[in-house]
Nucleic acid binder design. Structure first.
Lengths: 340, 340
DNA sequence: TTTAACGTTGCAAACGATTGTAACTTAACC
DNA sequence: GGTTAAGTTACAATCGTTTGCAACGTTAAA
């Protein structure tokens, strides 16, 4: 291994001390203008790259943010990371990502990996199977700032960034009612995740507001496209079928769409369909899918920004912060039009 | 900042020297069984986490792999990362990801970021706009192992992991011909990426093998769904329209599908359609899309495995390695059936 | 009894930066 | 001329590990 150029080398070549070199490179005003320029030029010419490990060791700051992702191959999360990366880069932070694979034990391990890496802060979205939060308490005990995004943790008091799940679902149902739909179904899971609860609540409250009775037969426990393809036909073939369905995510909506088309049901004439998601699937279906857009990129950005603020200005952010990213109903072809 | 427990603390509490503690924790056989056990137990009980920064500084190994991704919100790459993560974790490596956003300058910056981070190795897929490779030469000059994946670099001699783009395209066209198609079009870009060249070559060679003339009118320079929606109608409405199209990726295929359906063209009766990709979009279209599956997860895994091998056993892997991941034609609903 | 060998542990110097403080030079002031 | 202050730069400790080598006690061989 060829060894890198170090400050020591520069100091020797320029007949200076290491501390002077260090200070010059960090623009310390106590170093004479002339000396500083000389050092910087020498460094640039020789492609000097300061050893961040050594600096981190000394300053106790790694400038690395740890991110825990339930499933990296889920496009929503992939885009969340993209947003985080974007914001991190602007602030001179790197990110290391670890997956929990929707598994509690893996999540615990991920937390320990990040703690060992001495990250300056952690961003995390809960795995579907997590119900115990001791590993997060450990993070807090270690004084490592932590921010939850999207799938937040209610069992513990922390900062979080969520999107308006309740309002998104509410608005979607409200919209479909205004287009004339009356029997509106819901496909979603009964998991313990806040986002699942909130979306369902939005659905129910919208119906209530319009004095429409809730029919339990129209509520299906299902949150993937695969399941939806299997479960949708039953509900679509009933005597009094729904004229609209809100799905907890686009994958599920796409599954319902597929099943409906197989049955010859006309979309949106006979059935309005609305999903929830990152805007990817919804563009590729036919007809394109009306969907509550979540803006994962923005969620990632906001979460990263909040975390960096907490790291850099702990005194200003010593309280719990709750950021909300707006969802927006993106009306496309799978829902009826509003009457003029 | 509360300070962490260090080896020094353990040594003091146990009346030993730091070196003994260090050796014991790394299972050095020169440390007496009994002492070792005692130290390990104490460390475990007190949740000791060795400071990897210090260790890295000393050993000059960071156990971090740098990954450069053209676009993290592209599901294909998201899944590649998932595969890398999987393999890295098994070998006790972490990964830090940086995006190039398909931009040459950003890519150069990304390389420097990783070099500064003192990663043990780099995995990279070229941005669409990169034509100069000096930044990669710099990596090699710094003796940092580098492996290209998917979008490889031919301007420089390095290890790489690719999938069988040529064969994938060839087989797809061959299959469509066997189902009776004769006028087969191609939607793809003329970029300088190897994958683009190889897919087009596969398409052309398959036609040649069956003595079908190549009609330049059926070849469209286009590689996104958006463009395809705009460009496809022209070719579909010509007097002598294609009866099949191979698209360079699923997004493009999905765009063509959309346009065809708008025009009332029956899929696959009037037009067979085949894409190329990670198997995600192709499941969500209607009809579902026949597509050359690339297995991004496997590509990521293989690339990571190769890189780690080069890092750990440089003497065994001092030659250029070229790994190939097989593609497979996934026949779904958008292509005609083979005659019995 | 001496010596060699072995099994264990400790000493101290790295790794490459950061930073409080000391030391030096020069100019300015009384 | 002596004192002081400002402006520069150097010294040395430090961050928490790793690791070559020295040193120790014990046992076995000579």
């Amino acid at each position: 291994m060829k060894t890198h150029l170090t400050m020591k080398d520069i100091a020797r070549d320029l007949n200076l001390s290491v501390s002077t070199v260090s200070r010059a490179l960090r623009d310390d005003p106590t170093i004479a203008e002339e000396t500083r320029k000389m050092i910087k030029q020498y460094a640039a010419e020789h492609h000097f790259k300061p050893n961040t490990l050594a600096a981190s060791l000394r300053t106790r700051e790694s400038n690395i943010i740890g991110v825990i992702i339930p499933d990296m191959s889920n496009l929503f999360f992939a885009m969340v990371i993209a947003g985080m990366e974007d914001e991190a880069e602007k602030n001179n932070y790197s990110i290391v990502t670890v997956q929990s694979r929707e598994d509690y034990k893996t999540e615990v391990k991920a937390v320990h990996t990040l703690l060992k890496t001495r990250v300056d802060g952690i961003l995390v979205s809960l795995s579907k199977t997590t119900t115990n939060y001791d590993h997060f308490k450990e993070v807090i005990d270690n004084h490592v700032p932590i921010v939850f995004y999207d799938r937040i943790c209610t069992g513990i008091l922390t900062d979080k960034v969520v999107c308006t799940d309740y309002k998104g679902a509410y608005d979607a149902v409200d919209y479909m009612i205004k287009t004339g739909c009356r029997r509106i179904g819901y496909f979603g899971s009964d998991s313990n995740l806040e986002i699942a609860k909130n979306r369902k609540k939005g659905y129910i409250d919208a119906l209530r507001k319009h004095d429409i009775d809730i029919d339990p037969e129209l509520i299906v426990n299902c949150d993937t496209g695969k399941e939806a393809k299997l479960l949708a036909p039953d509900i679509l073939k009933m005597n009094n079928p729904p004229d609209a369905i809100l799905a907890i995510n686009d994958s599920t909506a796409s599954g319902i769409l597929y099943a409906a088309k197989k049955l010859g049901i006309k979309i949106p004439e006979q059935l309005s369909l609305c999903g929830f998601g990152d805007g990817y699937i919804s563009k590729h279906t036919f007809p394109s899918l009306t969907s509550v857009f979540q803006d994962p990129f923005e969620i990632g950005r906001q979460a990263m920004r909040l975390l960096i603020n907490k790291i850099k200005h702990p005194e200003l952010f010593d309280h719990i912060t709750n950021k909300v990213v707006n969802t927006s109903l993106q009306i496309q072809e799978s829902t009826r039009k509003l009457p003029d």
